[in-house]
Nucleic acid binder design. Sequence first.
DNA 1: GCAAGGTC
Length: 829
Amino acid sequence: MELIITEKDNAARRIAEILSEGSAEAERRNGVNVYRWGDKRVVGLSGHVVGVDFPPEYNDWRDVQPVELIDADITKSPTKENIVQTLRELSRRADEAVIATDYDREGELIGKEAYEIIDDETDVPIKRVRFSSITEREVRDAFANPDDLDFDLAAAGEARQVIDLIWGAALTRFLSLSARQLGDDFISVGRVQSPTLKLIVDREREIEAFDPEDYWELFADLLKDGDGFEAQYFYDDDGSEAERVWDEEAANEAFERLQEASAATVTQVRRRTRTDNPPDPFNTTAFISAAGSLGYSAQRAMSIAEELYTAGYMTYPRTDNTVYPDDLDPEELLDAFTGTTFDEEAASLLEQDDIEPTEGDDETTDHPPIHPTGELPNRSELDEDEWEIFELVVRRFFATVAEPATWEHLRVVAEANDCQLKANGKRLVEPGYHDVYPYSSASENHVPDVEEGEDLVIDDVELEAKQTQPPRRYGQSRLIEKMESLGLGTKATRHNTIEKLYDRGYIEQDPPRPTTLAKAVVEAAEEFADLIVSEEMTAELEEDMAAIASGEATLDDVTDESREMLEKVFDALHESREEVGDHLQESLKADRTLGPCPECGEDLLIRKSRHGSHFVGCDGFPDCRYTLPLPSKGEPTVIDEKCEEHDLKHVKLLAGRDTFTHGCPQCRADEADESEDEVIGDCPECGEEDGGELAIKQLRSGSRLVGCTRYPDCEYSLPLPRRGDIEIEDERCAEHDLPELTVHNGDEPWELGCPICNYEEYQARQSVDDLVDLDGLGERTAEKLADVEVETLQDLQRVDADEVATDVQGVSADQIREWQAQLGAEAAD
DNA sequence: GCAAGGTC
């Protein structure tokens, strides 16, 4: 039997399809797809299936000195047991194995991981095939000319693993221990995350240090035969054109001269035609950036792309490549769009004389640039966001095969009372690719045809006082572009790194700004471990890896040298351990500080109770026991806005898409204390027996609810929205005998209706959402399941799989068992 | 529980 191993299931399926000419069949083994035909088997891994770590005796952070990690053994162990198990089983029956992982460094290492697992079971020959894209020709070619695994290249990847682990773990533990942060809130550093964080911190430092400067700009509205346009004053500044006037007196003088002038004489007219080339094919970074300008975070864009890829609508979203492979036939792909929503665009592109796609500078071997596969989803299959991203990818492909646009630029210079004025007109002559790619700006600026010597009427003159602006914060996509240019991270990890910085409490909001903790971490690293916050570390590692790959150095040469450097870092760190720890702790406190306690004047802080919930408490505890409650939902963070009345900073609750601002916790508590409960009916739980009534209540934590007046003896409650005025209507719900409620918040009033009915509907919706989170369970399947009263995760878990499979069309018992296994696994976690 | 890199 010949065993073929790929990096992922998707690649396994496609290679099996090509080599078997479509006859391959899939079977499940330990939850892993194995594609089979004749005596061939293809199995896809899931990236790395083994990981590096320290032996278990190093697990306890308090028992081990971080410095000991430098010389600790490093072990490799399976991280995907079921896949490793499947690979072992198949190996025993194989008499030949072929590694067909991705054609890049990490792919070679993943291939070596598979190699060692196979080699452990059998002595059969193990070959390696390499192809730049999974197409019939390339794959057949590669399999006809198998090669050997490149152990040097794999060793280069291993050096990275070792160095990242040692530096990351040792320094993370050191900082966390020194600041006594051992729980979930440990303080992490790493080769990629820390230089990325430093980029953000450095930019914030520039902003904080920025000293704005005053300047003035002057504008004049000019008229030609009633046709108006704006021109800007400029002057000659040592041979170059300048618009900003730095001296107020000079600005006023120019303003007066322009006001006195009745006309401006055209002294120069220059016309230029400019070609505006269509964009290059999408790599991951360019895709994230384009999605970013549509309002998607990097993380969100990638997760949608992931789904579209798995569903078969677009190619692999993680790629550095910006050159389409030879075998991508643009005409054929355009053809796939005729007769679809994109019919018009496809037809017009097909009409072009020749169709030659654009090319970027980066050509890599692992995957093609991101493009649509030609398979089209039904509009209803995708939600709005997914469709928008899909359309972006389709239109980007269109743009890369479209004609350039041409612009006509018209520059006019006029003189008035010794003042120079200029206007730059821009007109789109040939829209070219803009017709199919409406995302990039194609805005025109109208300047009429004028001739030299012509007099123009000056209609209005304006003097604008301005100030220089600090540099702008990096947005997520700018940051990813910057990381790419510095070689930080990879196409598959950059967006995760940014997400990690949010999770670690290092950055907040979007565009991200650093917390006080982040500044302290970067400062500490700059002082004692400069390499870990510098992009140099990656650059040097890249060089070392290249040396290993070419055989000029060995894995041990490189890792030993790195260990020595880290030893030196620790020598310096140990001496300053307390100083570093104190500074980190102060910063952590600063990030949680709201302002003065009204009872004792010490700081009020966001604190965590023993049960894990957050509240506002006084730093003077236990002498001062003043507290304020916080909403139970989300992760509280302190924001810049401040309550003038209580001198307390506002609190915001981070909960992904449900993020909301709580404001001043003292104000919220005061409002609740002042508000009266409003009775709306009888409590369904204890009304008959004990006379409990339902009332609309405002809690000190800022939330509102409909709850029983006998609380805490009766805990019956229904949730209400946090914001808006609640109006109690005259109509009553026939079923529950409660009034209908309307919430007034902004423009459209929300008719919430009977609070019990509303809550029941909400719960039903929630359970559908939960179900849809399972792999391969779409909204439609969820609806079908709901028809047979499988509405919640709990329902799904206890049903008889065979029974449901017979009742629900299109869902197999195996599939249901898999979902149940998935739920079991989650519960076990 | 630490990193970064794969992938879902």
